[in-house]
Computed example of a mutant assay.
Amino acid sequence: MNDPILQLDREQARKLSELGDHLRQLRQHNQLSLEQVAERTMIPVRILAAIEAGNVAQLPEPVYIQGFIRRFADAIGLNGAEFASAFPTETLQETPTTSWRGTVQAQLRPLHLYLLYMVLVIGAVSGLSYLLSRSTPQMVGLTDNAQTVQPSSHTLSPTVSRASNTSTNQAQLGPFLPAASPTIQPSTNPLVAQKPVRIGLTVTAQSWIRVEVDGKTEFEGVLPEGTQRTWMANKQLTLRAGNAGGVMISFNDGTARRLGEPGAVEEVTFDTRTQANWTLGTVDSANLTASNSNPDSDDL
């Protein structure tokens, strides 16, 4: 029994050879060189040559190959979208069974940690208040007349006698009188503020992704469909995608938007001044830079 994955690879190689040969013949008929086509499409010459030769080994993922074929065909006068649709991009991969610990939903995010810390602080304050209230001594069975006044040969006025009794009672019961309960001030929550630039990413179709946080490459690689990731930066965050149509991004927990067209390579930069433009939907302003250039040989 043949391996379906191997069959798909052979079908892609066969179809690429047919499409590449047709592109080569039409390019030569139009008297165009590979260098001229590369200037029009912004695709490296080595990629164009590999497409014409049907050399799958020198090309990236099938979804990128289809995008290159579309732009190649448009540059020499064909209907690129219709022509490129003949190249199969599907992949046959078994979905690995993962436990709940491996899912994105099970990953603790900073917000979860902050909420847990708040619950612990509130619980500690409540417990301390309860212990202090339980430790206050209770006065049971104490009366104002704790002593019997012995008769005296001197006659005291009622006012003087009452004051004397009050002073005596306070002096004797002083150590047992309840002390003033201390006032417990609610403690402030020392939560670390989130960084000012937060980008949420959802992959709806497999795409190559590179993320630079404050000038440093934080991630680079291919993310499969269904992946959800979040990155944060202090000043600036730049995201570059090889299949912009399969990438949804949200800025500072705002509305998620598609980065670009399927198969297109897009790059977008966010910083602390992007909030107003993102809210208004002007994502192509000076503070949010996008480019349609393709990845160079290192990116592919």
Rank of each mutant, 00 (worst) to 15 (best):
E225G: 07
G245D: 08
E267N: 05
D253L: 15
N277T: 08
T272F: 12
D271C: 03
A256N: 09
S250R: 12
G254A: 12
A244F: 03
A244M: 06
A256T: 09
E225C: 05
T227S: 14
N234C: 12
G263W: 00
L237A: 02
T279M: 13
Q275K: 13
D271A: 07
E261V: 08
L259C: 03
V247E: 00
V283E: 01
F251D: 00
S250Y: 11
V268M: 07
A264V: 03
T269R: 06
F270P: 00
R273W: 07
A244L: 05
T255M: 13
R229K: 15
T272D: 13
M248C: 06
G245R: 06
A241E: 01
A233K: 02
F251T: 02
S250V: 11
W231P: 02
G226A: 13
G242H: 00
A256S: 14
N234G: 13
G254P: 06
R257K: 12
E267Y: 04
A276K: 14
A276I: 11
Q228I: 15
L239Y: 04
N277Y: 11
T269P: 00
R257W: 07
R229W: 10
L280C: 10
T274R: 00
E225M: 12
Q236P: 02
N277H: 09
Q228G: 12
D271Q: 06
E225S: 14
S250W: 10
G245W: 04
N252T: 09
A264I: 03
V247A: 03
T274Q: 00
A241W: 02
T274N: 02
R240Q: 08
A276T: 11
D253H: 15
E267C: 04
G242C: 05
M248K: 11
A244V: 06
Q228D: 15
P262R: 05
T227H: 09
V268W: 01
A256G: 12
N277C: 10
A264C: 06
V247D: 01
T255K: 13
T272C: 14
T227G: 10
M232A: 15
R257T: 12
A264G: 05
R257A: 10
D271N: 10
T282V: 06
N277W: 08
A256M: 12
T282K: 07
L237K: 00
Q275T: 12
E266S: 06
G260M: 05
D253F: 15
N243L: 02
T279I: 13
A264H: 04
Q275L: 13
D271F: 04
K235S: 09
P262H: 04
L280S: 11
G245Y: 03
D253A: 15
R258Y: 04
A244K: 01
A244C: 06
A276F: 14
R258W: 05
Q228L: 13
G260Q: 03
W278K: 01
N243A: 07
L237C: 03
Q275V: 11
R258G: 09
D253M: 14
A241R: 00
G226I: 13
W231Y: 14
P262K: 03
A264F: 04
V265E: 06
T279C: 07
Q228E: 15
G246L: 05
I249D: 02
F251G: 02
F270V: 01
A256D: 11
K235Q: 08
N277E: 11
T282C: 05
P262L: 07
G254M: 12
L280N: 13
R257N: 07
T272Q: 14
N277G: 08
M232Y: 14
T282A: 05
R240G: 01
G226H: 09
K235G: 04
S250P: 07
T230D: 13
